[in-house]
Design a binder for these strands. Structure first.
Length: 425
RNA sequence: GUGGGCGUAGCUCAGCUGGUAGAGCUCCGGGUUGUGGUCUCGGCGGUCGCGGGUUCGAAUCCCGUCGCUCACCCCA
C-alpha cells in the first residue's frame, strides 16, 4: 500500500447495503404518494448561479451568510452548490414558462443538497431531501393537501410520534407593521437578549422566538404575537387551512412562535418534529411562499411546498426492510483452473450465464476462484435456488432448496432450471 | 466558529497501575480421492490516527496535531 488513505469529506457519507435499501423504499413511497396526488418529478442542477440563492433564500439567513458552497468556474461565474430546493424549482418554473400550464403546477424532487455546517446527528454537509412544491394557486386546499401528503409519507415510513406544528406568518402590510413592532419590543429589552438575537434585530427579528437563551425567552414571553395581528384575508386563509386539516383528520398544534429559517415564507408555515432524532428534531417542514417566483423575475405567482430530510426520516422512522434480489441460478465451475485464467469450462459457464439471463432468470457466475465447497457455500449465502457446476463433458445441476441434483448435458442446464422453477410455482 | 467524548485488524471491541499486540464476526481454505446452511481446525489481515517528548523500554504516561462523534448555533 502506498500513499495516504483518502476518506470521504467531513459531513459526507457513502450509502451502501441496508441504507441503500431503505432509501429506495423511501423513494418508492414518496413517488407513490406524490405522483398519486398529481406531482411530477423534477430534477434541477446540483449547482446554480449564486445570485439565485442570494435573492431567493434571503441575505439574512444563515444559509446565505455562512453555509453556501460557492465556487468560481473557469470563466469567472459565481456558482453555488444548491443549499435548498425551493428556489431552484421556482427558477425552473419561470425559465420554462410553466405559468402557461394548468395551475397549480405540482413538482416533487428527491435530491442532494449542500451546506457548510458542522456535522452532527441528523445533520450533514451533503444531505438528501424529498420535497414537493405546488405553484400557481393560493387556495388553502393547496396548503392543506401539501401538509397531508408529507404527513402520509412520514406515516408510511414509520415515523412515530411526529408532532405537527402550524402557524401563519401573514403577508403584506400587516406583516411589515408587525415586524416593526417586534423590533421595537426587542430594542426596548435589548440588554436581556442573547448576542445572536441582538445582531438579528434588524435582519430577522422573528428568529428571536426560536432562541433557547433564558433572557431572550423571558423577553419573548411578552412580545407581540404575529397571529394576533394578521390581515383579515390572512386570518381567513389560515382558518381555512386549519378547517381542511381538521376534515382530513390531521392532528396539529398552532404555535405562534414557529418561525422558519428562510426569508421567503408567507402565510402558512409548518414543521413536523420527532423526539427520536436527538438535537435535530425537525424531520420536515415548509410553508407558503407567495412572493418568491416574482422575486426571481417571474410573474406574481403563489407557491406552497415542503422538504423533508431523508437521513432524518430514516433516523426517526422504521422503514420496511427491502428484500434482496432473488438469484435463480448460480453458475459454478468443476475445474477451477488457474486463478484469472481462461478455460473451456469457464467459457461454457459464461455461455450458460448469458443463456439463463436471456431466458429471464436472474443468474450469477463464480468469479473468485472458490473451491467447490466454497462455491456451494457462497451460492447458499446469496440465496440462490439452483447451482450449476459446469464440467468438461457434463454439468451438475443442484436444487439448493431440496438438495436434489442431476447430471446433464451442459446445453440442457438452463432448460432444466427453468423447469424446476416452474414446478415450484 | 466553540465545548465534551472517542481514535487498537474490513466490522464490534479487549489490552489494569509502561515490557514492542489479542478475541469475536466477516472473508478464504482444510476436516469429506470434488457437494451448501451446523460444528471443528487453520489462514489472510494491524506503521496500535499522525508527530514529538519522558523512559533501558510506550498501544499504555505528557504535549501537539489530524480525524470521528455528540452538543451549542442553525436547519432537513
Amino acid at each position: 500500500m502506498s500513499g495516504e488513505r483518502i476518506k470521504a469529506p467531513r459531513g459526507t457519507f457513502d450509502v451502501l447495503g441496508e441504507q441503500a435499501g431503505m432509501r429506495m423504499a423511501l423513494e418508492d413511497r414518496a413517488r407513490a404518494i406524490l405522483e398519486g396526488a398529481g406531482y411530477e418529478r423534477i430534477e434541477t442542477p446540483a449547482f446554480e448561479a449564486t445570485e439565485l440563492f442570494a435573492r431567493g433564500v434571503g441575505s439574512s439567513t444563515d444559509i446565505v451568510r455562512k453555509e453556501m458552497y460557492t465556487l468560481t468556474d473557469g470563466s469567472g461565474r459565481s456558482l453555488t452548490l444548491r443549499p435548498e430546493g425551493t428556489a431552484p424549482v421556482c427558477r425552473a418554473y419561470v425559465e420554462h414558462g410553466m405559468h402557461k400550464q394548468p395551475q397549480p403546477v405540482k413538482l416533487w424532487y428527491l435530491s442532494s443538497f449542500f451546506r457548510y455546517e458542522r456535522a452532527q446527528k441528523g445533520r450533514f454537509r451533503q444531505f438528501w431531501q424529498v420535497g414537493a412544491e405546488a405553484l400557481g394557486s393560493d387556495d388553502p386546499a393547496v396548503d392543506a393537501e401539501s401538509i397531508v401528503l408529507l404527513g402520509a409519507l412520514l406515516d408510511e415510513m414509520g415515523v412515530r410520534e411526529a408532532r405537527l406544528r402550524l402557524s401563519s406568518l401573514g403577508s403584506g402590510e400587516s406583516r411589515r407593521r408587525y415586524r416593526e413592532r417586534l423590533q421595537g419590543h426587542l430594542r426596548a429589552n435589548e440588554q436581556n437578549l442573547s448576542a445572536e438575537v441582538r445582531e438579528r434585530i434588524e435582519l430577522n427579528p422573528l428568529r428571536a422566538f426560536d432562541s433557547a437563551h433564558e433572557g431572550t425567552m423571558a423577553v419573548m414571553r411578552d412580545a407581540p404575537r404575529l397571529l394576533d395581528e394578521l390581515d383579515p384575508d390572512d386570518v381567513e386563509h389560515f382558518a381555512a387551512v386549519r378547517e381542511l386539516l381538521d376534515r382530513a383528520g390531521v392532528a396539529y398544534e398552532v404555535d405562534a412562535t414557529l418561525v422558519r429559517g428562510l426569508d421567503y415564507y408567507t402565510r402558512t408555515v409548518f414543521e413536523f418534529t420527532s423526539d427520536a432524532l436527538g438535537a435535530q428534531s425537525g424531520v420536515g417542514g415548509g410553508g407558503r411562499y407567495d412572493g418568491l417566483v416574482e422575486q426571481l423575475g417571474g410573474p406574481a405567482t403563489p407557491g406552497m411546498g415542503w422538504a423533508a430530510g431523508i437521513e432524518r426520516v430514516l433516523l426517526a422512522g422504521s422503514p420496511p426492510p427491502a428484500g434482496g434480489q432473488a438469484v435463480d441460478l448460480y453458475v459454478g465451475l468443476a475445474d477451477l483452473g488457474e486463478a484469472g485464467s481462461f478455460s473451456g469450462v469457464k467459457a461454457a459457464a459464461f455461455e450458460i450465464l448469458s443463456e439463463a439471463r436471456s431466458a429471464g432468470l436472474t443468474a450469477q457466475m463464480e468469479m473468485a476462484g472458490r473451491s467447490l465447497k466454497g462455491q456451494l457455500g457462497h451460492a447458499d449465502r446469496i440465496g440462490a435456488r439452483f447451482v450449476a457446476i459446469v464440467g468438461e463433458r457434463e454439468t451438475l445441476l443442484k436444487d439448493l432448496q431440496n438438495g436434489r441434483q442431476e447430471t446433464l448435458a451442459t446445453d440442457k442446464v438452463v432448460h432444466a432450471a427453468l423447469r424446476g422453477l416452474r414446478e415450484l410455482a
